[in-house]
Design a protein around this nucleic acid. Structure first.
Lengths: 254, 254
DNA sequence: ATATAAAACCACAAAATGCCACATCATGCC
DNA sequence: GGCATGATGTGGCATTTTGTGGTTTTATAT
């Protein structure tokens, strides 16, 4: 099998791949002080296991890159709008609501612009901008490092701010849903943050459209007891992930 | 030599296309440090996959990008744009920069979108959104309660986050300029926050257009020794406030 | 319409990468 | 120790990518 040295190398490769999404043969060879050919063989073995995909000059994550926000908005827009309206119907005037970033929750925010005496806490720049322009909804932005793809903040600052707030309702997104019915995410950090968001709500809902049942993302979001339900546009019963979710959580169909 | 991955280039192109709706060959070539011909080949291959459509000078998704709302509404837009460019000329690659909210600073942000290896910290939602969409500038949003008129955060959370950061350059706005040459603001809270922002910069600049000399606002922003200058479009010498400012601070004319 | 500058296209050269075969070295095992 | 095994390095050669110079096309102003 692999010698200890080689094993370390593979780990480091996977690790930096996780961090930046791509690695180059030249950089790795230099970093580990080995020849490029060796790195190429490493990457090839990882590719054979399906853990990375090779590109000219290096490798990238085998998982498809997270689609950008504007792309996600276009995808299944009617379904997401319905989810947004359904979620908005749970919100009553005077409540304090936490809204996660994402294309689905953006529809929720738009459904809330006519409300009054509302306080909304969010980590999403577009949601904060939309709501503060109403001049009526009191808006609180969870600051911190901005993740460009989501146009939202993730990180230690965000987590720290989150700890200060407890809300009536929390609406949180997810990257995908596993065969066990667990919610999953693209990165460890995002999963942790979403977990904290769920905990911050006296009642917490996960919003997801049906395409999430078919999407696998690597990190599991730890479940929380305060989860009041899953709001979804429809439930494809031929999928294991959908059946599992149905058993584990209350389902609210939009 | 190590070549940067072509794969990353394609990703960045798609992402900035998603963000802004269009890209130009020249900009991309400069940003990645490759020849225009290479960019043309990249765009062509993406066009072959039907993922972008080519136009003379670049590529597009067909979606027209709407110019930022608050920018068009701004009074004295040409003057503020000039101030933004002047301020941007003080920023060098690799710096960490703090940018206050305001229409003038929004022009500064837009002048920075072509830069690389920049970290920008801001309390303004539109500035954070604009910069994070470049996919290149690292953006940190100072969270907290959003003040609707400014579309920016002010308050205890913002002040608390601000304490964590020290930056190379700080660009801060002001509500007005007093006859003594002091900078003034509308509220006690805003004045305190701007004071802290000025202190957070190793070098700090106040940006203001000439209309500020004629405007009185109630609270004085406490002066700071690290103030490196006042960046302004022109200096009306018939006003007491202008003469006083000229005596007290270094003036940078845009 | 014509002039002009910028951009696109094309073909070829240069550089970097990938692949293969073989030599070398370390390690494990008998 | 001697041998087998697997990892690593080296050099040759094919492939891919990139840059360059020249020509053609396009956009825009006069």
């Amino acid at each position: 099998m692999n010698r200890p040295l080689a094993f370390d190398r593979l780990n480091h490769i996977l690790q930096s791949l996780d961090a930046s999404g791509s690695v180059s043969v030249g950089e790795l060879a230099e970093r580990f002080g080995v020849s490029k050919e060796t790195i190429r063989r490493d990457l090839k073995s990882l590719a054979d296991q399906g853990r990375v995909s090779l590109v000219h000059g290096g490798a990238t994550l085998g998982l498809p890159a997270e689609p950008s926000l504007s792309r996600r908005e276009a995808e299944n827009a009617p379904g997401k709008a319905a989810i947004g309206r359904k979620a908005a119907s749970l919100v009553r005037d005077g409540m304090v609501v936490l809204i996660d970033s994402g294309s689905t929750t953006l529809f929720l925010a738009e459904a809330l612009i006519t409300r009054e005496h509302l306080t909304v806490i969010t980590n999403s720049l577009p949601i904060a901008l939309t709501l503060c322009r109403t001049q009526v909804v009191k808006t609180i932005m969870l600051g911190g490092e901005i993740h460009a793809n989501d146009e939202a903040s993730f990180g230690v600052d965000t987590l720290e701010l989150l700890r200060h707030y407890t809300v009536d309702l929390a609406f949180v997104g997810a990257g995908g849903i596993s065969d066990e019915g667990d919610f999953t995410d693209y990165t460890r950090l995002a999963a942790e943050q979403r977990h904290l968001m769920l905990k911050a709500g006296r009642k917490a809902y996960v919003v997801a459209d049906h395409t999430k049942f078919e999407r696998r993302t690597p990190v599991t979001i730890a479940p929380t007891p305060s989860l009041a339900g899953l709001i979804i546009d429809r439930l494809p019963d031929e999928l294991a992930s959908a059946r599992a979710a149905q058993q584990r959580w209350p389902i609210l169909l939009a």
